[in-house]
Design a binder for these strands. Structure first.
Lengths: 342, 342
DNA sequence: CTGTTAGCGCTTTCAT
DNA sequence: ATGAAAGCGCTAACAG
């Protein structure tokens, strides 16, 4: 198959030709260079010519010249989980506002790469910087090369200074206080792999806060964020000798699994067991038992990641960011007063 | 804030310097130019030098030179709906396999742009071509400019020749045959806006096939693909004088809404009403009543879109594509034998 | 077998 | 107030 020559759009030189000026003048005018004083008449002629020729600046040439690509790379671990989609959407919009485009890379869940493996995108100047969410707690060295602008979002990585996260501890406190308010004294946290930073932060916060409030806490780690995995954990909870009276769940998929396991075990929600989700989604309101959840500022986190990354790209100093957009508890019908233990 | 000069990676010239050869030779060797016979020893020296200098080709320079960016633009209408996410993931992976990267643009649902508005991405050579899913049935002219390589995926657009779609009619037949098998004679199709191409195709196929089989068909169009909208339609169905005995639903969100409406109206599924979804998702298996669905080849469609677009970019002739990956009916528990009408 | 040359389209200093 | 010239890093046609 022959590569067909692309029909070229008008170049700067074409516009210059039409307007009868030098290309550099066109560049100055069209870019609104403030340091250059141009005669209004010339300026008008140039603008007219550009419009007439349907001029479009060539991003590649500009990028080569200025060594700025105008695009950002975003590595997400798994698009199947809606939280990444919301983060993505938030980042997409903020990037657009700031004149950047975003390339999404989805980590293969089977063959996860360490964050450092994506450096090449910057080194080959495909993107100006990276937003990474594929850090596991083990691999702390990460994208150590300071020449590669990057931030870790939602999951911390590296040695700090490039992390953009939400206030997971706050979310956990919100849930636990809600539980306390309804008289629960023994709760479970059903969440993902302990190697995942978000999970680790939630667990730590839960332990601390439960200790403070004298609440019993049971932590269950699913091996992966799937319905099946949540289902298995749910069976475990339902069959335990001293089951908790409230269960908080880390992801939507796991929640569906848990619900199914409880239903099967004839554990009624919320009569026998209250349930809270850390993922808010519209669909929760329409389930057989509408599920109470914490609405986390995901889009804001995506946007904040873009801001932080652009800050690094522009030479800003390393600085961790915690998105403090207020979280809210969306009260639905899956939480009831705790029943006295038998 | 000062823009910091990016630490440059080694260039071709640097490698040439180390290896003691001319840059063009390095280019030939590193690109494995078959027409150029190079002395093995020189080749080795060059490869060593490249490794030593940690050489990375500069994508921008290459793009400028070859007028190929190596990236594709993908415009999706709404990431909230999981089908677009699956299409996106399929496209992402195929693009990666073929050495391309993808930039995702999410259409703002509030301010939809006609497809033609994304031409600038190609004209400014940010991408080599466009995959568009934001076509509405009205705007047929679309990206008329033949200089802009593009395909419409999942939703047809333009004047044909650039469409990549699934066999929606086949999916509809699958569902209707399933309904017939269970003795249903009156069914409803609850789907999105009639201006959406996918919806229009499903409706047409449903009308045709129902007529052929002597089945009564009632079509309900939701204004938008949300739970709320499905809920409203569900109320309408539940309260109708001659309710259908089976309801097929176009999207997951609408399905959740419908389920809630039926539950509220004390219409039991599947006893009083059978339900089938055109979106397959793992979570369907874990609902209070596991929902039967059609599993559509979404990832394949995403991949096929990339293939079709690259074909156009490489000068291939216009050609519509229908992805014929076999669809399967995922039988769960939301379909039962039709009850005799009262 | 390898070097020379030119140029993709743009911006930016320097000169006038 | 505008033009000239250089060069970002790469590749491809042409020489030798």
């Amino acid at each position: 198959m022959e590569a067909v020559p692309r029909r070229r759009t008008a170049r700067l030189a074409d516009v210059a030709g039409i307007a009868g000026v030098h290309p550099s003048t066109v560049s100055r005018v069209l870019n609104g260079d403030p340091s250059a004083a141009v005669r209004p008449e010339t300026s008008k002629r140039i603008h007219d010519a550009a419009r007439q020729a349907h001029y479009r600046p060539n991003t590649m040439a500009r990028a080569l010249r200025g060594s700025r690509t105008g695009s950002l790379g975003m590595v997400v671990p798994m698009l199947r989980n809606p939280i990444w989609v919301r983060l993505q959407a938030g980042a997409l919009h903020r990037a657009q506002e700031r004149g950047y485009v975003v390339m999404i890379i989805e980590e293969s869940p089977d063959a996860p790469h360490p964050a450092v493996d994506y450096r090449y995108l910057v080194e080959e100047s495909r993107v100006d910087g990276l937003m990474l969410a594929n850090a596991l707690r083990g691999q702390r060295s990460a994208v150590s090369d300071p020449g590669v602008a990057h931030v870790f979002f939602n999951r911390r990585g590296g040695r700090g200074g490039n992390n953009v996260v939400m206030d997971e501890a706050g979310a956990v406190r919100l849930v636990i206080e809600h539980a306390v308010e309804y008289g629960h004294r023994s709760i479970a946290l059903l969440d993902g792999d302990s190697e995942v930073d978000t999970v680790a932060r939630r667990v730590r916060a839960a332990r601390a806060h439960c200790a403070r409030r004298g609440i019993e806490l049971q932590v269950l780690h699913c091996t992966d964020p799937t319905e099946e995995s949540g289902y298995l954990a749910g069976q475990q909870i339902a069959s335990s000798l001293q089951p908790p009276t409230l269960c908080a769940v880390g992801s939507l998929n796991q929640l569906f699994g848990l619900r199914a396991a409880l239903r099967e075990a004839k554990v009624s929600v919320p009569r026998d067991m209250s349930v809270v989700s850390f993922d808010e989604d519209e669909c929760l309101a329409y389930l057989d038992v509408p599920v109470t959840s914490v609405s986390m500022p995901l889009a804001e986190l995506g946007a904040a990641s873009v801001d932080a990354l652009l800050d690094r790209i522009n030479g800003g100093a390393a600085r961790d960011v915690v998105v403090r957009t207020p979280m809210t508890l969306v009260r639905r019908e899956s939480v009831a007063r705790a029943r006295r233990r038998p």
